[in-house]
């Protein structure tokens, strides 16, 4: 069963198409890696799923609810982290999560649980303004995870983290579907990263979906087209490159 499904989802900015007739299928209970180079349209897609920007065309369903009629219901079930971490610099990490907790109407314990998950418990009393980049990133993640939403939409969650932090957050994301019975839709530039945490991948280039399926499918399909498969990063780059060439060298 697919928990997120889009039908010809399209976003056009005056004359420029950022996302083009996207048909995504995100199976329930998986980590779905959404992959693409800079400017491919990953954030744009995620923002449409959250109702932050309006699709020019197409539609989508999240957990059986259709946008825009069920917008509020969708937002209740989706925890999200988009582009940059959002926080009130004048509040502590704990107070920041407390605001989100109140809005979502969650039990008090959910704040400490979220802090614990992202490893911020020791810094919960520090002002978010004084957090390091990685700590802000973690706070943003905590704001998505709080209350164990059934769907998580995470846009480049490991940005700005140190190698140990990247590993830790990856392991966390990997474990989420089993731990909390949720689905994670996560974006990244790096196939090597997605490979370590995702069950399925969708590869986006210039707003178009080049591939969708399991990592195994990706290897098969790449091998069938004569692309290298021993290093998936090369596979990804070759795939993107071939698509760019098909578009007549237009980048």
């Amino acid at each position: 069963m697919n928990i997120i499904e889009t039908q010809n989802l399209t976003k056009r900015y005056s004359g420029f198409t950022a996302v083009s007739e996207l048909n995504l299928h995100v199976p329930k209970g998986t980590v779905y890696g959404f992959l693409g180079p800079n400017g491919a349209g990953k954030s744009t897609t995620m923002k449409m799923l959250l109702g932050l920007i309006r699709p020019t065309g197409g539609s989508f369903v999240i957990d059986g609810r259709r946008f825009p009629d069920d917008r509020t219901q969708i937002l209740k079930e989706v925890g999200s982290f988009i582009e940059a971490p959002a926080f009130y610099g004048n509040l502590t990490g704990e107070e920041n999560l407390e605001i989100i907790r109140k809005i979502l109407g969650l039990p008090k314990a959910s704040v400490s649980e979220a802090l614990e998950l992202v490893g911020l418990t020791d810094f919960r009393k520090r002002l978010a303004r004084k957090y390091s980049l990685g700590m802000k990133q973690r706070l943003g993640l905590a704001g998505a995870l709080i209350g164990r939403p059934p769907v998580l939409i995470l846009d480049e969650p490991t940005n700005g983290l140190d190698p140990a932090g990247i590993h830790e957050i990856r392991t966390l994301i990997r474990s989420l579907p089993r731990q909390f019975d949720c689905t994670v839709f996560v974006s990244s530039h790096l196939l090597s990263e997605i490979e370590l945490m995702a069950d399925c991948v969708g590869i986006l280039n210039h707003g178009r979906l080049l591939f969708e399926g399991t990592l195994q499918d990706l290897k098969f399909s790449a091998a069938a087209q004569g692309y290298p498969t021993d290093n998936l990063e090369d596979t990804f780059l070759t795939l993107i490159d071939a698509d760019n060439r098909r578009r007549g060298g237009a980048r």
Partner: peptide, 17 residues
């Protein structure tokens, strides 16, 4: 200003209010 300074406006808009 506190909403726009560090993207909390966007975060608020992804919450069900």
């Amino acid at each position: 200003h506190i909403e726009y300074a560090d993207h909390t406006m966007q975060k608020m808009n992804t919450l069900p209010i």
